[in-house]
């Protein structure tokens, strides 16, 4: 690992200032992703600014009747918080499907949003990778790409975003609050937070240099009864999703009145299934409708040499997730 300096600011202002003074800095949350990548020589910050101990580590009600998740709160504390379990069980379920208990204890909510792709070319510095080294080429495009994207990719990058938490946040229509050096903060829609690779795959998201994530806001409690997070993976735990689906349904009078549907493992960002959501809204929650919605959702998927299976797996996963959500009772 390269030598680096380490600072532990007391306040967010100090942290922001430290990042302005040394633009080669990285904020440190739980370090479960950053430190791994530093060991692999992929991330090479000359300064580490610890933010995990800053004050943004609570869960509070917000003005809109929803809830604010502190960005520095651990994934475990968030997922197991009674308010989250009761009011946003879809988020809890998705978060608890990720990694291991030990990693979730360390991982922070902010860090989870910013974790980087698991593409093996990205991790191996001797390989070409536009995301790690712009202009070096995309090793996966014509290489080993069975775990790569089927939506929204570009010739320059076919990577997927690995987070489970983010798939649920997309389905729940969360927002992200960021604070910039100078003290101003801004809030953006969750679906606008991550981006597609285009010709700038080095940018995973729309965060600006030096910005700190301070909070994630959830709207009114949602899908408290009919929800499911389905994660298909290569072993029963401690593996990233090949495909995942976050599904939330609100049913009234035998019809779907509100729906949240998003997929993981298929794109450079959590993939909100807007067409399928629109199709199902107002319809009866039948298997036939679920199947039609799933077909619609996977329409337009563009597969790579090794990942054709994701289309059929995606369809089955959407139908199953919706069925499981429907089957749940209060």
């Amino acid at each position: 690992m390269r030598p680096f300096t380490y600072t532990q600011p007391e306040t967010i202002e100090e942290a922001l200032t430290a990042s302005v003074t040394n633009t080669d800095s990285k904020y440190l949350g739980g370090g479960t992703n950053l430190v791994d990548l530093m060991k692999e020589d992929v991330e090479r910050p000359s300064q580490i600014i610890e933010v995990a101990d800053l004050d943004f580590n609570t869960i509070t009600s917000n003005e809109t009747g929803g809830i604010t998740l502190g960005a520095m709160l651990s994934n475990s504390e968030t997922a197991n918080h009674p308010d989250i379990r009761k009011n946003y069980p879809l988020l809890s379920m998705a978060m608890l499907s990720a990694a291991t208990a030990q990693i979730r204890n360390m991982a922070t909510n902010g860090g989870n949003l910013l974790q980087r792709t698991r593409c093996p070319y990205f991790f191996e510095v001797s390989m070409p990778c536009n995301k790690r080294e712009p202009g070096s080429g995309c090793g996966a495009l014509e290489g080993a790409n069975s775990k790569h994207a089927i939506f929204g990719w570009s010739e320059s990058c076919v990577a997927t975003h690995p987070s489970d938490m983010c798939v649920a946040l997309a389905a729940l229509e969360a927002t992200v609050t960021l604070q910039k050096p100078g003290g101003t903060s801004r809030t953006i829609e969750f679906t606008d937070f991550h981006r597609l690779p285009g010709d700038q795959p080095e940018k995973d998201n729309t965060i600006l240099p030096g910005e700190i994530i301070t909070a994630i806001d959830l709207p009114n409690p949602k899908f408290q009864t009919n929800y499911h997070y389905l994660k298909i993976r290569e072993r029963s735990s401690y593996a990233f999703a090949l495909i995942s689906v976050a599904a939330g349904l609100q049913i009234s009078g035998g019809k779907i009145t509100n729906i949240g549907l998003a997929m993981g493992g298929v794109a450079h960002k959590p993939w909100k299934l807007i067409k399928a959501e629109a199709f199902l809204t107002g319809k009866m929650p039948t298997k036939a409708n679920f199947e039609q919605a799933a077909e619609l959702a996977l329409k337009g998927a563009k597969t790579l040499s090794e990942n054709e299976y994701k289309v059929i797996m995606g369809i089955k996963a959407i139908v199953r997730a919706l069925e499981q959500a429907l089957a749940k009772t209060a």
Binding site: P120, G143, E234
Partner: peptide
């Protein structure tokens, strides 16, 4: 085995399951 370069793409316990 990576098909073009010959390195192993499963290179840690995160990918070698």
């Amino acid at each position: 085995v990576e098909p073009n370069y010959g390195n192993f793409i499963t290179r840690s316990f995160a990918d070698y399951h």
